[in-house]
Design a protein around this nucleic acid. Structure first.
Lengths: 137, 137
DNA sequence: CGGTATCCCCGAAGATACTG
DNA sequence: CAGTATCTTCGGGGATACCG
């Protein structure tokens, strides 16, 4: 797997499934948990599989593994395996390319926050969000 | 239908299906043709249904109607029906809220362009893109 | 710890035909 | 012109169990 861009994406490109480069960008983070993963990895230097697994509500290992695999093959994050005390460990961390995406994600966060505030979203949601990395209480 | 936010989105909000406000933002344009629609409407003052239909490759009327309906109910675009010479006409145009999303879409366009250039995407795609509203030839 | 392997489901999108 | 109405397909994601 030396492909610079994920196979499916390439296929879509050649098929003309993307109308434009913005759809290409969209495809980078359109998986259900990709934004959270990028967000979290954008705030710490590294993370283990199970850390992410525990952090992200309701995700299954299979799906998480999948999202991570795609993010890796899109070169937004990188995976490093090593060993300590006969224990196999793996860390995930952002690449530069992944980091270059963070400003966009930040803007998405801000836009959503503005918009949700404007409509007084039910407390149920606000509680849920409190678990996320938001500075304001 | 006086709902400020689309039902499905609202349901997801109350269910806690969104981990964060960035996922909410994502849901605004994650339909297959929403980015193009917003992009096009962002560059002209208004557009008819069939103009969009002809402009967007491979979309079916059903799907286009669906995407438009959701964009309307998310208040990103607005729909106006009127009559001329016994002909029913409809125009779609951006709302202020929709326009506030354009900077993000622009950034997505730029990011994708950078990234695709870095990998010399096949000419087939570049031709496809040429049909889009891009200033550079 | 860091994943696979199966089986299943559901909803978005496609194909095609029709309408006021 | 601006859509509906059906029927079908497809694949991302969920549930659960197992593995080195």
């Amino acid at each position: 797997m030396t492909d610079p861009i994920r196979q499916t994406v390439l296929k879509k490109l050649t098929n003309g499934d993307f109308n434009c480069e913005k759809e290409f960008t969209l495809s980078m983070f359109s998986g259900k948990y990709k934004l959270v993963i990028l967000w979290e990895l954008g705030h710490v230097s590294e993370m283990h599989f199970n850390e992410l697994y525990r952090l992200i509500d309701h995700v299954t290992k299979k799906v998480l593994a999948n999202q991570l695999r795609e993010l890796v093959s899109d070169q937004l994050i990188k995976r490093t395996a090593y060993e300590r005390n006969n224990q196999k460990l793996v860390i995930y961390q952002m690449t530069e390319i992944g980091e270059s995406l963070l400003p966009i994600i930040d803007q998405m966060y801000e836009w959503g926050k503005q918009r949700l505030n404007a409509y007084q979203i039910p407390a149920a949601f606000k509680l849920d969000v409190a678990g996320d990395i938001s500075k304001d209480a």
